[in-house]
Write a protein that binds this DNA or RNA. Structure first.
Length: 842
DNA sequence: CTCTCCCT
């Protein structure tokens, strides 16, 4: 059988032969995974060295290797082999080695020159996993340094080639795919509809309009279960075999969903994106796509991840629809309109942009790179999550203060698990708890034993179920409500780590809850939760954030927990998985890791500077007492931090005088920019607290004591004497008016100052009063005798000439005791009544 | 309104 990719093989071979990197852009079905490595095997430039081909999934790696070997008519482990976690088939003569992503990173770390390798092929690069992005960056680094004869071939779905080609300085070779046509039906959905209802309706419609089996895409397991329950009741599903398919279902159930129905019934499979690439389901001719996908997002501010339900990307939707056209022409119902289609993102967001970067940060440090800018990336690791990751690694002792890897860090990097868990394994070994640490790490890292169960269970139940599985097999696990398949996977991971730590065999012992908490605290020193007073399920995390146990958790009321799984979404984090923690045991077993520190710091809850001597484990404060003597400079520094956190608005501006001073200076700054008046905006004052406010802080350590500050004098002290003189002259606090009185000017942060004055006081005055050496006319608020505003103007002469007459007419009757002369120009300006004027003899 | 998929 000839495959479309064969047409471009000569060009591909030639380009690589010229010593170039190459990007092969080909849609699914082109045959790139099977044909390309074999076509290159005999190339002389390889000089007998091997080809490494990277696959994004274990299933795919094993499958690709098997097909390649079959094409050569050999068993696996001869010319073609594979290496994935837990399994490898590699022989002496192996020239094509198919590996999964983590394996390649590991190999590069052990041998940066990739000795004996002539070509690295990245298959399905468009999936943009964290590991494949990292592996490409490391390969490029190796190529540019030690191995200029190493070649790279990146294979990717359509429309992605140019970007990668630019990064790796490569030629793009394009191939056609093989795919039966799929007819697309875009059907706008009820925007309020829940995913399960929308997709169930789509399935019912497809059942009526099409023949053949149906594959429907939903965002997650919960929606799949609800859609399943709903469709079971529906008459359209009578006689139809209804299946669910998602990663956490037991293997047998997944298998049944993939196979043709034993009784030959028509099949409907409700699936997560697991069916998008990893699994091929027999007999599908119709796809129903709800158009969602769920993705984790790491929030560097909290250090936590949460799941988000997003619209599918165009690439994913394409892939999903394609599932209907593997056997024959098919149909895809897309439950969104053409407009929505145009707004879809072209590709899934690269994992490097949204993931926890702690593992990547450790890999980079182990590679000897402190700044990711030293490597070439399609998308560099974003700064904030990377900084957060480095901070975590520093806390775990993997990095030193200078950001270099420590001996412990190197040991951690060599263990195939998350740095948090690697730290727990190594520290657990020192405590003589290595085997238990392996179990706990596996329970954290592998599939949830109790997924889908109603009750929120504490961590201890997992360890108990694992022990039961070891002693009594699958039945033992089932009796405790655990999934035996998942137990097997956990045991397999734990066994791998035990062997890496050179532990002989697992000694099963009693599960000690407190030791478990202790070990978990070694992995999550920053996720310790203390029970809030007056309740039994609300906790305070060491970060200061609130957290809440899942309803009905058996851990309710425990004073101290280690939160293993925290969902960071929303106001309060949700503690999904936790173990109780005993401070006494920490002190007893981890005494060496306790840090005693004297802390003088602003406390947001106390609204004051607190000075305490604290005994800490990670972020957990085990003991705390007040410091007998405190350095005044430290208090001042902490107070400044506190004021910065509260904002300058928290200072006592209420009196008004200080605000007026700020407004006067701000006005002069705006009117007379050449004079260099200081910037006293909130932002500027906030930024320079240390300069202008610090000298006045001695004796102040609480928020309420800020009321003592005389902000007017403090700000005035910022001006030198000539400036103070000029301020009085150019922006006076008061203005004299013709009546002889002095009235207060009201300055504003922007605009002209306001002079509020009874209009009788201004008789005879033609010129509007001015400030700033005559540059700015004040805004007059002309008042009635009852001090009600009659007119607002910046043009007094015009007021006398026009509006004054009407004002007179209107107000004369109401205020007969006050003067309302026909000619305001010649009348005597006064604040007094007629009677007083007469008494004064006029 | 129960946590997607994948990997050392």
């Amino acid at each position: 059988m000839t495959l479309p990719v064969e047409a471009v093989l000569p060009e591909l071979v030639q380009r690589l032969g010229e010593g170039r990197n190459v990007v092969l852009e080909a849609p699914p079905g082109a045959g790139k995974t099977t044909r390309v490595p074999l076509a290159l095997l005999a190339e002389t430039w390889l000089r007998g060295r091997s080809i490494l081909m990277l696959e994004p999934r274990r299933l795919a790696a094993r499958g690709a290797a098997a097909r390649l070997a079959a094409l050569l008519g050999e068993p696996l482990g001869q010319t073609v082999g594979f290496r994935i976690r837990f399994e490898s088939r590699i022989g002496r003569q192996t020239r094509i080695e198919v590996v999964t992503e983590g394996i390649l990173t590991r190999r590069l770390q052990q041998d940066p020159t990739l000795e004996g390798v002539g070509l690295v092929i990245f298959d399905e690069f468009h999936e943009r996993h964290l590991h494949s992005d990292l592996a490409l960056a490391l390969c490029l680094d190796a190529q540019s340094g030690l191995r200029d004869d190493l070649r790279l071939l990146v294979m990717s779905a359509t429309l992605y080639g140019a970007l990668v080609a630019q990064l790796i300085d490569a030629e793009v070779v394009r191939s056609e795919g093989r795919q039966y046509p799929v007819t697309l039906h875009h059907t706008p959905r009820d925007p309020e509809g829940r995913p399960e209802a929308v997709v169930a309706a789509g399935v019912v419609r497809a059942l009526g309009e099409q023949r053949g089996d149906i594959l429907a895409f939903l965002p997650g397991g919960a929606e799949i279960r609800r859609a399943h329950d709903h469709l079971l009741q529906h008459p359209a599903c009578a006689g139809v075999a209804l299946h669910m398919l998602y990663g956490d279902l037991p293997f047998e159930v997944q298998q049944r969903a993939i196979e043709p129905d034993a009784e030959g019934r028509r099949k409907v499979v409700l699936a997560t994106p697991i069916a998008e690439t990893s699994l091929t389901i027999e007999g599908i001719t119709t796809v129903v796509d709800g158009g969602w996908q769920r993705a984790p997002r790491f929030d560097p501010r909290t250090g936590l991840s949460h799941l988000e339900t997003l619209r599918v990307s165009r690439a994913s939707a394409e892939q999903r629809a394609g599932r209907a056209g593997r056997l024959q022409a098919g149909v895809a119902y897309r439950l969104w309109g053409e407009n929505t289609q145009r707004g879809l993102r072209p590709f899934n967001e690269p994992e490097i942009g949204v993931a926890d970067l702690a593992p990547l940060a450790l890999e980079l440090t182990a590679w000897g790179v402190s700044d990711p800018g030293q490597l070439r990336w399609l998308d560099p690791p974003p700064a904030a999550p990377l900084a957060q990751a480095r901070e975590l690694l520093l806390g775990l002792g993997a990095l030193d203060e200078g950001g270099r890897i420590t001996a412990v860090g190197r040991e951690m990097a060599e263990l195939p698990l998350h740095p948090r868990l690697a730290h727990m394994l190594l520290e657990g070994r020192r405590l003589g708890l290595a085997a238990t640490a392996c179990d706990i790490a596996a329970l954290v890292a592998e599939r949830d034993l109790f997924r889908g169960s109603e009750r929120a269970r504490p961590f201890g139940d997992r360890l108990e179920a694992l022990t039961a599985f070891r002693q009594q097999g699958r039945e033992g696990a089932r009796r405790l409500g655990a999934d035996p398949h998942a137990c097997g996977q956990v045991e397999r991971a734990a066994r791998q780590w035990r062997s890496l730590l050179r532990l002989e065999r697992h000694r099963s012992s009693e599960v000690d809850e407190e030791e478990m908490g202790l070990l978990l605290a070694l992995a999550y020193p920053d996720r310790i939760a203390r029970l809030r007073e007056g309740g039994d399920e609300r906790y305070l995390l060491s970060s200061g954030r609130g957290a809440r146990l899942l309803p009905h958790s058996p851990l309710r009321g425990r004073p101290l927990l280690v939160a293993v799984d925290l969902d960071g979404q929303g106001e309060e984090a949700t503690i999904r998985l936790a173990a109780p923690l005993s401070p006494a045991l920490i002190r007893e077993r981890l005494g060496g890791q306790l840090v005693v520190r004297e802390r003088v710091a602003w406390d947001g809850r106390e609204q004051a500077v607190v000075a305490r001597r604290e005994e800490c484990f990670g972020a957990l404060v085990l003991a705390s007492k007040p410091l007998p003597q405190v350095d005044a400079a430290q208090v001042q520094q902490a107070m400044l931090t506190g004021i910065a956190a509260l904002g300058v608005a928290a200072l006592p501006w209420e009196a008004g005088e200080a605000q007026q001073l700020r407004a006067r200076v701000a006005s002069l700054r705006a009117w007379l920019p050449e004079q260099g008046w200081p910037d006293w905006s909130d932002a500027a004052l906030q930024a320079s607290l240390a300069e202008w406010l610090a000298p006045f802080l001695p004796g102040i350590s609480r928020r309420e004591q800020l009321a003592r500050l005389d902000l007017t004098s403090i700000l005035l002290a910022q001006l030198d004497y000539p400036q103070q003189r000029r301020l009085e002259e150019l922006a006076p606090t008061h203005l004299a008016v013709p009546s002889g009185a002095r009235h207060r000017l009201e300055y504003r942060l922007e605009g002209v100052p306001v002079l509020a004055v009874k209009l009788q006081e201004l008789f005879g005055l033609a010129e509007t009063p001015r400030v700033a050496a005559g540059r700015v006319a004040v805004l007059l608020h002309l008042l009635s005798p009852a001090r009600r505003p009659v007119q607002v103007t910046q043009d007094l002469a015009n007021f006398w000439a026009t509006t004054y007459k009407e004002v007179c007419k209107e107000l004369k009757g109401r205020y007969p005791k006050h003067p309302w002369p026909d000619d305001p120009w010649s009348a005597r300006p006064t604040a007094a009544t007629m009677r007083r004027l007469r008494q004064e003899g006029r």
